[in-house]
Amino acid sequence: MSRVRTVLGDLPPEELGVCDAHDHLFFASPRLPGQELDSVPDARTELAAFRELGGRAVVQWTPYGLGRRAGELPALARASGVHLVAATGLHQDVHYAADTLARLAGPALAEVFVAELTEGIGDSGVRAGLVKVAGGFHTLDAHARWTMAAAAEAHHATGAPIAVHLELGTAPLDVLELLCDTLGVPPHRVILGHLNRFPDAQVHRQAAESGCWLAFDGPSRTHHATDWRMPDAVRDLAEAGYGDRLLLGGDTTTAAARSVSGGPGMPHLLRRVAPRLARAVGEETVRHILTANPARAFAAEWR
């Protein structure tokens, strides 16, 4: 039976509710000094604001070694009434110190992922509900191929979905070729993130044809054309018959981007993005993208 693995235990998919399919309550990277998401009160405020607008679930894509604070998540889920899903996995190598990567080098990486999916993250008791990995800009380097091979191994061992950070939305077809064609991961277990940052309709349709999930997650921080083209990209896919493969997320990665700090934060997804998309594709399609789709995308028959 398929279940969504939340920080409070496995959940029937139909109970997930309105879902922010890609966001961060906690995140810390040397690439973003001074912008760490590490405040528990601020995380609580973000969740409360999201809940007030009808949000019921948040999938946190923060992977290994980037300040997940997994031990804080159960209390936040209970206090907010929002289901939370945690992640294992590994981001691009630029987010890690060399000694961290050296410690994980080799085939043992898959064992780390499997342990966090089945036993828990550290001593928190919180089990991850997905594996997050990352590609490069228009390519997959050796680090990406190593982490994706480990993610595929973890998927085959547990059934976990694999979520992929696409650098500026690029190389989705390379990711699918590696994960699905070479490593044998079923396309419906793969979630491609940040497609809004590279709004190429032909590439989007090619990816959708595989049966994978396509996530449009996070407003542009520099008002790129990707922001105003996003509704058209979603409409194009929905009209082509792929509305049941789409996901939406907020992807808050810095303290300044939180609503409590004056940024868009988690509430932006339901306050501004969803109504804007409804004008392009209709309210029913948006409801489906926010509820039925994530319920299927993040559910797994856990082994």
Rank of each mutant, 00 (worst) to 15 (best):
E301C: 12
A77C: 12
D23A: 15
Y242K: 01
H143D: 08
V82Y: 02
R68N: 04
E167Q: 14
A150S: 15
I289R: 01
D174H: 13
L84R: 01
H83D: 09
T139G: 05
T182F: 08
A240I: 06
L11W: 01
T285Q: 12
R279F: 02
A87E: 07
T88N: 12
T285I: 09
L183E: 03
P219W: 12
R56C: 10
L176N: 05
V175N: 05
R78M: 11
F216S: 00
S259A: 15
L84A: 03
A110Q: 10
L130Y: 06
G67E: 03
G122A: 08
G9F: 06
G34A: 09
S210P: 03
W228P: 13
R229K: 15
F298L: 03
R127S: 05
A238T: 12
A299V: 14
P294M: 07
A70C: 11
G184H: 10
L16Q: 05
T253A: 13
R296P: 00
A87V: 05
S220Q: 09
R287L: 09
T252M: 13
R272T: 13
A115I: 07
T226Y: 13
H268V: 13
M230R: 13
G34I: 12
V40M: 03
V133M: 06
Q92E: 12
S29V: 06
V164F: 01
A171V: 03
D38W: 02
A207N: 02
A28F: 07
L117I: 01
R56M: 11
R205K: 13
T226R: 14
A171P: 00
R276F: 01
G184E: 11
A97K: 10
M230I: 04
G125F: 14
D217R: 14
A278C: 05
H268K: 13
A108N: 09
R229N: 04
T158V: 12
A299I: 05
H24V: 04
D227K: 05
G282L: 03
I289G: 01
A108R: 15
V58K: 07
Q60M: 13
G135R: 04
A280V: 03
A142R: 11
A108M: 07
A225S: 11
T6C: 04
R189G: 00
L140E: 02
V126G: 13
D227M: 04
A79F: 07
D181M: 00
R205T: 14
L166D: 01
A171S: 04
R205E: 11
R5F: 03
A255L: 13
G55L: 11
L104T: 15
W61K: 09
G243W: 01
A160E: 02
